[in-house]
Amino acid sequence: MIWSRHNISSPSRADVLLARLSGSLAFAVAVLLALVLLMLFKESWAVLASGGWARFFAGEGWFPSSGQYNLWPMLWATLVATLGALLLALPLGLASALFGRFYAPRWLVLPLRRVMMLLAGIPSVVYGLWGLTVLVPLIAQWEPPGASLLAAILILALMVLPTVALTSEAALAAVSSASLQGAAALGLSRKGIVLGVALPEARAGIFSGALLAAMRALGETMAVLMVAGNVVQTPGSLFDPVRVLTANIALEMSYAAGEHRAALFASGLLLMLMVAALAWLAGKRGGRLYA
């Protein structure tokens, strides 16, 4: 629709005032949000300036007391945990979205969606509590110590499942009924309709849902902190305890000072950059970032 909102109403003094007021408040918000980035840079400058980024990707490991700030082990743990959670959550979330659109009896559709919305609202610290008291002991019976990469992957998968399911369902709902009816009229089986018509047409929406889920998983702190064991090491197996970047900040912020504190801010900056890259990718594909 091409019409300009700007000249359909008569201007008045109240208008000019409101435009200025809301404009300056909007500007204040923009400034406030720019401050987030600025503060991160300012606080991490001490370590960025002396030795630059190189120190975060080289050296013996993460030994703040002796000035070693190698982020690789924690970066790997973060990436592997996120990827593992997505590998589990994508098929399961997609399947429950397909179930809601194509397979569920009518009376089940709404309750199922309500359950998903409810789960999307459960605080991460509750997922962490449950993981710590139920999941970790279970894994420990199988292969000690229990608090491990596997526990982190399982809890993260559970946490991002509602995101995947709700965004995929929205994408599937947007598939035009004409193409579905056309496919049915051509005599395609339900499998043919789902795999051949619905999924390809909903691809973009499902993809941006997956990116949103990846953003959530990358940035999650509490749940992972509570179940992953928090040992700084490059994960060698699923049962190794690991520490992710977010958990590292939460664990060390309380006593970090000087260069150590700056290094933590720099790892926050790195997290923010990764999330921004994903958001940019999702925006480029025209996806919306809200479930």
Binding site: A26, A30, L33, L35, V36, M39, L40, K42, E43, L212, M215, L218, G219, E220, T221, T246, I249, A250, M253, L264, F265, G268, L271, M272, V275, A276, L278, A279, W280, G283, L289, Y290
Partner: peptide, 23 residues
């Protein structure tokens, strides 16, 4: 402004914690 808001909506909460602590 919208692009910035979308990006900020995805910033991990621990990063906001860092920011709040510093500011």
């Amino acid at each position: 402004l919208r692009v910035c808001l979308n990006m900020l909506a995805g910033v991990p909460s621990i990063v906001f914690g860092l920011f709040g602590n510093a500011l």
